[in-house]
Design a binder for these strands. Structure first.
Lengths: 339, 339
DNA sequence: CTGAAAGCGCTTACAG
DNA sequence: CTGAAAGCGCTTACAG
């Protein structure tokens, strides 16, 4: 079974030309029914598969797309990837995975590599460091190369590409409004991702929903020791009754802070987290959380890219798709169910 | 910037032959220093990159490896992937990701696809359903195709391939022994993965470590309602003092069960989980857990595959690499630190 | 209906 | 030191 059989070998066995074999296998109307059958039978017998590399060289497409993931250990991105993979599967495309590890340098390196023509298109979620630096030249470079790019999740940039993301601002606005309607007077926000677009957007949503009479309570820092201090300020000094967490890390810190200081959830403090189902199911007591539907984001991004690759998308127009989040209500919170 | 420049175009601009340009770029000693410089300069100017597809066709290698992941939303596998990706990066290989979703059919389909020559080698962790069915023909098929395969994590199969895994039995044996030395008399095990090799191995390690005088307390089921019943039996009826959990799901069930029945951890019950750091850090109180070092597993698997691909491995001999686990001790357990 | 020829973009023995 | 030629495995206009 060592060597894969080629068209040439098949043609020799069949005593016809390579062209004929190729056409027969591709159901060309040029070839007689009889020949087609003969060829296909032998091909099946030898388990013939066209060499994808050769096919790609002819068609000058690689049949693969590149996915750049900032952090694969984050279940959110892992699920996005699984959505991408599922959709790519449907479209007959391969997925080449690149992990930027939130590093600018690595992202530049990956993108540089991608301009060699390894892939027909790219799905990108911009690394944290890149966002901090606001250095996007490498991404524009990719676009200049006419490699279709779709941004996913971290999207609020003014780039001429398709985008798929989440209604960050809207989700926080809705939750805040809901809490206000419940009669909650002091609402706070905790974040370790203030420098990311998504983090900024979420806070904006919160701010927009606050009533003019209400004070903002924002505890934000990327450094754990400072964050705990700030959490102390809003939980102990300001005595907020509810807190919205912008990310997994801040949810965890609030949760642990409450545990260590005997603050009961949800009696003393209502907590809404931005995290995934798996972790929430571990928490005792459970909290409410905003479900982002990462698989859908992945599928949506791959779908847009697929359209670009097939030329079904308009050339000078980009699409922005927003996947709605859902507030999930758990046992020990006081929200009504949402369906 | 639309069209990538090719060797042919470069050669025209330089008034030399395509061969000369190719050799110059590859630092062939055949070419004069002057020409090499001239060629490289222009190539750099035009940002020339060899078309990887064409290079692959010549070398009849694809330069990519395929990774089959049973479940990417499991952080364990996500981290394995990140280890694989890092090592592949070092070796200049691309990683094509396939997600089997623990499905036998999907795994068969992926492997069938892989025999077309998309990849030079495969890293595989066998899907749950495949293990249940004990149907491995498709994997042998891949091996017959002379595509190097390395099994990772789920490895205890008698296949003639390289393997990288964890010391499942050993890890449970060690923990059990440790507990016994601490004076714990009744030790139980909870598992939802009894049908997986890893699950079996862990239980075997536990059984081996038990003293002849001690009774086994095993709560195992893949169905949640049955599992809760069995957890009840060992926690309430048998009153075990410590419980080893074989997987994330069973850890979570035990944890929640204890919470709901006011069983204090670790005063009433010591819990050792098989889960990842992220989740553990969420638990209040925290528990001890066995750290498997998934990134190292990924790197190790990729390293073995790399050796096969470079022909550095002996042909009729396979390597099995075991990555040691580590027991991690957290605040509220009574283990000594281990370093 | 079938086949010879050119070509996708490269590399590499071989000749000069 | 340089270049023409063959070839990796395929597809597809073109000729017969």
């Amino acid at each position: 079974m060592k060597n894969k059989i080629t068209l040439k070998e098949l043609s020799k066995l069949l005593n016809v030309s390579v062209s004929t074999v190729s056409k027969a296998l591709n159901d060309s109307p040029e070839i007689s029914q009889k020949t087609v059958e003969r060829v296909k039978e032998l091909a099946a017998l030898h388990n013939y598969r066209p060499n994808p590399v050769a096919v790609n060289l002819k068609s000058s497409r690689s049949g693969t797309i590149g996915v750049i993931i900032p952090n694969i250990a984050n279940v959110f991105f892992a699920k996005v990837l699984s959505g991408i993979e599922a959709k790519a599967q449907e479209e007959g495309l391969q997925v080449i995975t690149y992990i930027s590890n939130e590093s600018y340098d690595r992202e530049v390196q990956i993108i540089d590599h991608l301009t060699s023509g390894f892939v027909d298109g790219v799905l990108l979620s911009i690394a944290e460091e890149t966002q901090r630096k606001r250095a996007f030249d490498h991404i524009y470079h990719l676009i200049d190369y006419d490699i279709p790019v779709v941004l996913y999740d971290r999207i609020n940039y003014d780039m001429p590409v398709d985008k798929v993301g989440v209604d960050d601002a809207e989700s926080f606005k809705k939750v805040t409004t809901k809490l206000i309607k419940k009669g909650v007077k002091k609402i706070g926000v905790v974040s370790t991702i203030l420098h990311l677009v998504n983090g900024k957007e979420r806070i904006r949503g919160y701010q927009e929903a606050l009533l003019p009479s209400m004070k903002e309570h924002i505890a934000a820092s990327t450094r754990r020791e400072f964050l705990d201090e700030k959490i102390h300020e809003i939980l102990i000094d300001d005595k907020v009754e509810a807190v919205l967490c912008c990310d997994t890390e801040s949810t965890m810190r609030v949760y642990r802070y409450a545990y260590e200081h005997n603050i009961r959830i949800p009696e003393d403090l209502k907590v809404v987290g931005f995290l995934n189902e798996e972790i929430t199911s571990f928490l005792t007591p459970s909290i409410s959380y905003i479900e982002q539907n990462p698989r859908k984001i992945g599928k949506g991004a791959m779908k847009l890219l697929g359209k670009r690759l097939k030329g079904e998308a308009e050339l000078n127009k980009t699409t922005e798709k927003i996947i709605k989040t859902k507030l999930v209500n758990l046992e020990s919170t006081t929200f009504d169910s949402e369906h």
